[in-house]
């Protein structure tokens, strides 16, 4: 009856919360009635073929749930909590970055010249537009994930289903859907910032011509943008592939390793290449901090910091790649041998 339990679990996942347990209980009771009724030898315990035939006749779990009022959503109930979580994180990060930027601006004396109204206008306007952008990206990527995950395809195609699928699904190494959704969303935000808002990362100050922002990433960084965008897109592609297949197969593992190699190569190129951060002398002076650091010293410090972060990232990538190779090829082989020895 293991199969019946797996079947009920799958239905439960799709049912609306209201009356969920009661509905499952009734389906269970009905299935047992049907199985008992179909048992070719009532004196014997029922065989698995009969159970499978009954489940197949009863219908694919998702279809059964839909009959009970499970709806198709833009973002479904099993994805919704993750969506809210990711949305919170993204919005908080965006708000924090904005506020941090403007705290720095206000602390610098230039904002006094701008006048209160202009300053507030600038802060609220900038915050709103970046929050809406963040909200849009998160919502669209979750909607895309919702509509490309395999179960959605099944119901749309109305394909035949096999109870065997329940057993297979239980034993394969499943991917973490919530984690993937999270990664895809953050990567999309990252790509958007990298390609459209790069000049926003900078120093803000006010002078006679109005608000001025000076980017701190210099043109040396521009040459890396296409490469970083490329591996970020590959990352998203791989994550969508994982959402579709639901398991880490050989193709996915090799894909991940290749992407890691590209990431490491880009990081190394940035570390050995020319400095990517320049704090402009005039912008630094305009911020008017009472600290005795020259813009040039600040530039040097920030560049060393970036190199350290990139170095640590390379280390992390190497560790991840080795772990991936070990768990899937070396340890995986052992597991296979152990099973075949039995």
């Amino acid at each position: 009856m293991k199969l019946v339990e797996l079947y009920l679990d799958e239905i439960r996942r799709h049912l609306p919360p209201r009356n969920r347990e009661d509905i499952v209980k009734e389906i269970n009771s009905t299935l047992l009635d049907m199985i008992e009724d179909r048992n070719p030898n009532p004196s014997q315990p029922v065989d698995e073929e009969t159970v499978k035939a009954v489940l197949k006749e009863f219908g694919a779990p998702r279809d059964v749930a839909v009959q009970y009022g499970a709806k198709t959503y833009l973002i479904g109930p099993h994805m919704f909590p993750t969506y809210v979580q990711v949305l919170k994180i993204v919005l908080i990060v965006i708000a924090a970055l904005n506020i941090l930027g403007f705290v720095v601006t206000i602390l610098s004396k230039s904002s006094l010249d701008a006048g209160l109204f202009d300053t507030i206008f600038q802060i609220v306007g900038g915050l709103m537009s970046s929050l809406f952008t963040g909200f849009g990206i998160v919502t669209l990527s979750f909607a895309a994930i919702e509509w490309t995950t395999p179960e959605e395809w099944n119901i749309k195609a109305g394909e035949e289903w096999e109870p065997e699928q329940l057993i297979k699904e239980e034993h394969t190494q499943k991917v973490n859907y919530a984690g993937l959704a999270f990664e895809i969303t953050l990567t999309l935000v990252f790509i958007a910032v990298l390609n459209f808002f790069l000049d926003r990362i900078g120093i803000y100050y006010f002078d006679e011509s109005g608000w001025v922002s000076t980017p701190i990433l210099n043109q040396n960084f521009n040459r890396y943008v296409p490469w970083i965008t490329a591996y970020a897109l590959l990352d998203i592609g791989l994550n969508f592939y994982l959402l579709r297949t639901g398991v880490w197969d050989k193709f996915a593992i090799i894909g991940r390793l290749l992407i890691n190699v590209i990431k490491m190569a880009v990081n190394i190129a940035i570390i050995v290449g020319p400095a990517i951060i320049t704090v402009s002398e005039s912008a630094w002076r305009n911020l008017n901090f009472d600290i005795d650091i020259k813009a040039q010293q600040l530039t040097q410090g920030l560049n060393i910091g970036i190199d350290i972060v990139l170095g640590l990232a390379i280390f992390g990538l190497v560790v991840e790649s080795i772990k991936l190779l070990y768990t899937n090829f070396i340890k995986g082989k052992h597991a296979y041998i152990e099973i075949s020895n039995k």
Partner: peptide, 10 residues
């Protein structure tokens, strides 16, 4: 079919 009957009863 049961897919119709049980939700209908509810």
């Amino acid at each position: 079919d049961q897919g119709t009957l049980y939700p209908l009863l509810r």
